[in-house]
């Protein structure tokens, strides 16, 4: 059954920046709406577009020049787009499987997380790897994924004092979110593991491992496996 997504609210936030906003919340519904709308907006503006930044509930379009916007026209095109989109294969977003080593060498804040959640190490790993997470947006650092859908049992507040340096590829929990640090940087999230994968590499054609709209599934690996993958990827 086809459910139509309402047209988002529109505002110019700068001379050439158009912001489209759905209902302000972090939800699965918005995740799908934003993805679909992002594709729509690329199609509509085509050569007039520099780029878009999809967010939790927004799509921000950076245009080459200011254009007159006919909302009624856009609304009707959006309806048509959705009708055509429904059978489209791109509705099924890519799932990226990411190995994580939860070994104590990498899991700097595991004890803090255990204490706060009253869960065992095994339970934390099992919950963290149990469901795929939606990549709602990428930002803060190049390739840093804001992942939605963290089990509420693993919600742990950020550190009171952020660390000056967190190693690249560290996996963390910050409040209701989980994520991976793509490059070495300061940060306040609880670090519970590390992946041998590189999330950001400017020398690659696609510099980031993840894109908005992907889903991420973590799976647990041992330190031996971590070292093996790490060597292979060098």
């Amino acid at each position: 059954m086809l459910q139509m997504i309402d047209f988002p609210s529109v505002m110019w936030t700068s001379e050439r920046t158009l912001r489209f906003a759905f209902h302000q919340e972090i939800s699965q519904q918005n995740f799908l709406a934003v993805n679909q709308f992002n594709q729509f907006i690329h199609k509509i503006f085509r050569n007039n577009m520099i780029e878009t930044v999809p967010g939790y509930f927004t799509v921000t379009a950076f245009l080459k020049k200011r254009l007159p916007i006919d909302i009624a026209q856009l609304e009707s095109e959006w309806r048509e787009f959705q009708l055509a989109f429904n059978d489209d294969i791109s509705l099924i977003s890519r799932v990226v499987r990411i190995p994580v080593c939860y070994d104590e060498e990498f899991a700097l804040d595991m004890e803090r997380v255990m204490e706060f959640t009253k869960l065992s190490y095994e339970e934390i790993v099992s919950i963290h790897t149990s469901t795929p997470y939606a990549v709602h947006l990428i930002g803060f650092l190049p390739g840093f994924p804001y992942l939605g859908g963290l089990d509420p049992r693993l919600h742990v507040p950020r550190l009171q004092t952020p660390r000056k340096q967190i190693e690249a590829s560290s996996v963390g929990i910050g409040g209701y979110q989980t994520g991976i640090y793509p490059i070495e940087s300061p940060g306040g999230w609880n670090i519970i593991g590390r992946t041998p994968y590189k999330l950001f590499d400017v020398t690659r054609e696609n510099p980031t491992l993840l894109q908005t709209g992907n889903r991420v599934a973590f799976y647990s690996i041992t330190k031996q496996e971590f070292n093996k993958i790490n060597q292979e990827s060098v």
Partner: peptide, 9 residues
């Protein structure tokens, strides 16, 4: 550097 904001650059 344009075209890479969606991946955080």
């Amino acid at each position: 550097r344009f075209g890479y904001r969606a991946i955080g650059i």
